[in-house]
Design a protein around this nucleic acid. Structure first.
Length: 269
DNA sequence: AGCCAGGAAGAAT
DNA sequence: ATTCTTCATGGC
């Protein structure tokens, strides 16, 4: 990816491998409003220019990593497009990049995402930030672990979490952000084993945390959209574990990338 | 009104 | 070890 950092601006050259709508609307992050993105304590705003995009933020190094700018997505897309099923999805979501989200924020966000829709997930997470997040200028950071640990289970119900409230209350007492960080050293099999022990974390949510937080690309989160896609373009199969097995077998170490293009494409039609 | 959303937990088999 | 049922909430 061709880019340079000038003060508080990351200047992206070209529009082939970076598109904020594709990146933000493909379901890997819920903390954004238009082209304004929030991650942990940070915020960035993306503006389109003649040559590409300018990312304004106070911490360019953070977002250089966050947007995975050092990875060559042209090469990945070329490889993926060898598969017939991915030609249209890659053409459609050409500007997708898989984010390196904050681990703790990803855990909380995807526990809330279970059996939920994106609009409501965003609403709940906005309320979390506005009620408990440190105020930084005119926005709120994602709440700290300590702050979340203080609230009662009913607080999570009051902001609309429904039955996921008990999962959140429990998981905060099972693990800390530091412990999550320490799991980076595990291989994917061991990591998943640890993650599914957590309250509210099943196979699908664990895959999402691994892909969008830990950056593991050898996983394939299977949600209702991927389920639909598989039944349309592959074969009838309702067991999501089997669907995952087959898709990981097909896409290997590129599974996570393939999943994002397929998810974004399937949800658009 | 009923179905669906980036599913997981607990019970039943 | 697999399959079935239940779980809040809001949008459509």
């Amino acid at each position: 990816m061709d880019y340079k950092i000038e003060g508080n601006i990351i200047k992206i050259k070209g529009k082939r491998d970076f598109n904020p709508r594709h990146i933000l609307d493909c379901g890997q992050i819920f903390a954004y409003d238009g082209n304004v993105v929030y991650s942990g304590k940070e915020r960035a705003e993306i503006f389109e220019t003649k040559e590409g995009f300018d990312i304004f933020c106070s911490n360019p190094e953070y977002f250089e990593n966050f947007f995975d700018l050092k990875t060559d997505y042209g090469k990945i897309k070329k490889e993926l497009s060898k598969k017939v099923i991915l030609v249209d999805p890659v053409r459609f979501g050409y500007g997708i990049r898989i984010l390196k989200n904050d681990l703790f924020e990803t855990l909380i966000s995807f526990i809330i995402s279970a059996n939920n829709n994106i609009k409501r997930i965003k609403m709940i997470l906005t309320r979390l930030r506005e009620n408990l997040g440190e105020k930084i200028g005119d926005y709120h950071a994602f709440p700290s672990y300590e702050k979340l640990l203080c609230v009662k289970e009913d607080f999570f119900k009051e902001i609309g979490c429904g039955y996921r409230a008990s999962y959140l209350f429990k998981v905060l007492r099972q693990i800390t952000p530091e412990k999550l960080e320490s799991l980076r050293e595990l291989n994917s099999r061991e990591l998943k084993q640890k993650l599914v022990e957590l309250a509210g974390v099943g196979p699908k949510v664990a895959d999402c945390i691994m892909l969008f937080g830990y950056g593991r690309k050898d996983v394939f989160p299977v949600d209702t959209w991927i389920h639909k896609m598989y039944n349309t373009y592959y074969k009838k199969e309702d067991n999501r574990i089997k669907i995952r097995e087959n898709l990981v077998k097909e896409f290997g170490s590129l599974s996570g990338y393939a999943q994002q293009y397929l998810f974004f494409y399937q949800r658009s039609i």
